Amino acid sequence: MERGPEAFAGAAFALFGAGLLLWTGVRVRAGAPVADGVSRPVAAVTALLAGVVFLATGCWLLAAL
């Protein structure tokens, strides 16, 4: 009963983290801004770190099943 919400949360975190990493990579490679009004290196590093944290959290939740 308790594994359903944990699996959903793990999948949601992992998908969001992977999507954020993919989107950030595409934006950086194309030379497009990652965030509006922020310097490119700061925005890219922040988005990459957030993507890694979300992906790691999702994998951790899914591994705990």
Rank of each mutant, 00 (worst) to 15 (best):
A47W: 10
G37H: 14
A63T: 04
V28R: 00
A7R: 14
G25D: 08
A43P: 04
A64N: 03
L21N: 01
R27L: 15
G31E: 14
F16L: 10
R40C: 00
T46Q: 12
F13M: 08
A43L: 08
P41R: 01
L20Q: 10
G19P: 03
L61G: 08
E2F: 09
A43W: 11
F8S: 02
L48M: 03
V26L: 15
V34A: 01
G25P: 02
F13Y: 02
L20I: 00
L15M: 04
L22A: 04
G58M: 00
V34K: 00
R40Q: 09
G25N: 08
W23E: 07
V53H: 03
R40G: 05
L49V: 12
V53R: 02
A30W: 15
E2W: 09
A43N: 03
A12L: 13
G4L: 10
L20F: 10
A56F: 01
R27V: 05
E2N: 00
L62H: 06
F13S: 09
W23S: 07
T46L: 09
P33E: 07
A18G: 08
V26D: 04
G25T: 13
L22D: 03
A35C: 08
A56C: 11
A18I: 09
V34F: 12
A43V: 06
R40A: 02
P41Q: 00
V38R: 05
T57R: 08
S39R: 13
V26P: 02
S39E: 14
A9I: 11
G37V: 11
G51N: 05
A44N: 06
V42C: 07
G58A: 08
L61V: 10
E2T: 02
T57W: 12
A64Q: 10
C59D: 14
F8D: 11
P33C: 13
R27S: 11
P5H: 13
V28L: 00
A44F: 03
F54A: 02
S39I: 12
T46D: 09
L21I: 06
F16H: 07
V53K: 01
A47M: 11
G19S: 06
V53W: 14
V42F: 05
W60H: 13
P33M: 05
M1W: 15
L48P: 08
G58W: 05
A43M: 06
A14G: 05
W23C: 04
G25I: 15
T46P: 00
G37Y: 13
P33Y: 07
G10W: 14
V45E: 10
L55Q: 04
S39Q: 13
R29S: 14
A14T: 14
P41D: 10
P41L: 01
A47N: 11
A30Y: 13
A50Q: 09
T57Y: 07
R3P: 02
L62F: 03
G4E: 06
G4P: 04
A14F: 12
A35G: 10
A30F: 11
V42T: 13
A32S: 05
W60N: 12
W23K: 14
A43D: 07
R3N: 12
L48A: 09
C59K: 12
